[in-house]
């Protein structure tokens, strides 16, 4: 009898315990998204590097790939312009024309030899100004969309990156090259788009800035 009462009290206790604290005891609901696989078709057009760098900040390549076939250069360019004026993408007028031309060639009705495509595919001349400042580069390349100085966003914080690589020899070169080429896997499954329009000097300025964050 005593044993039964003991058992009953355990049951009653467990019931109350479960009923009152089921929520706080539940493990957080966590998912792991599958990796992205789609890639933009490689092209010599300058819009290819720009698209790889700028479009992939906010969405995967399949967003573009599964648009309708047969769209013209004007239609693709208008769609890229929409990314700037409606969705706040950091794209200059020249970027929009150049990306629109590239997408119209690889996914639409245009040919790389069309005069309209050639005219739109102008590489921005390097500015004959003083050495660019890290802050300007961070802004013009949309870095702060995914990164912050001291908190994790889509990508790791600059402080975390600095503490991981600071002690490594050649850290600045390695980081500069990593930015230019992009990558996935070192910090999770969300890919870092290649910042292919950064030149070597700009990439080294950014790498230096990041490594200085402690």
């Amino acid at each position: 009898m005593q044993a039964i009462n003991y058992f009953r009290s355990i049951l009653a206790f467990s019931f109350i315990f479960l009923a009152t604290s089921s929520q706080s005891l539940a493990a957080p609901n966590q998912i792991k998204l599958p990796p992205e696989t789609a890639k933009l078709p490689v092209s010599d057009l300058p819009g290819y590097n720009l698209a790889t760098q700028k479009c992939m900040i906010c969405h995967s390549v399949d967003y573009i790939q599964y648009q309708p076939p047969g769209m013209s250069q004007a239609q693709w360019t208008a769609e890229v312009a929409k990314m700037e004026h409606s969705y706040g993408a950091s794209l200059s007028k020249a970027d929009i024309k150049s990306i629109g031309a590239y997408l119209a060639v690889v996914y639409g009705t245009a040919k790389a030899t069309d005069s309209g495509i050639i005219a739109a595919s102008v590489v921005n001349p390097p500015k004959a100004e003083a050495a660019p400042q890290a802050q300007d580069l961070l802004n013009s390349n949309g870095c702060m969309g995914c990164h912050a100085i001291d908190e994790k966003r889509l990508g790791p914080s600059f402080k975390t990156i600095a503490s991981k690589y600071q002690q490594q020899a050649e850290a600045q070169n390695m980081l500069a090259s990593s930015m230019q080429k992009g990558g996935v896997g070192k910090w999770g499954e969300i890919p870092m788009p290649p910042m292919a329009s950064l030149n070597a000097e700009q990439a080294r300025i950014l790498a230096k800035f990041i490594l200085e964050q402690q």
Partner: peptide, 26 residues
């Protein structure tokens, strides 16, 4: 029809194989 090939079936958390429209955001 699509600009760049056919859409695959893919498996995301909590889902059976569904048609991929785009992966990020899902």
């Amino acid at each position: 029809t699509f600009a760049g090939g056919e859409r695959p079936l893919v498996q995301f958390p909590g889902k059976r194989k569904l048609i991929l429209v785009h992966s990020r955001p899902p």
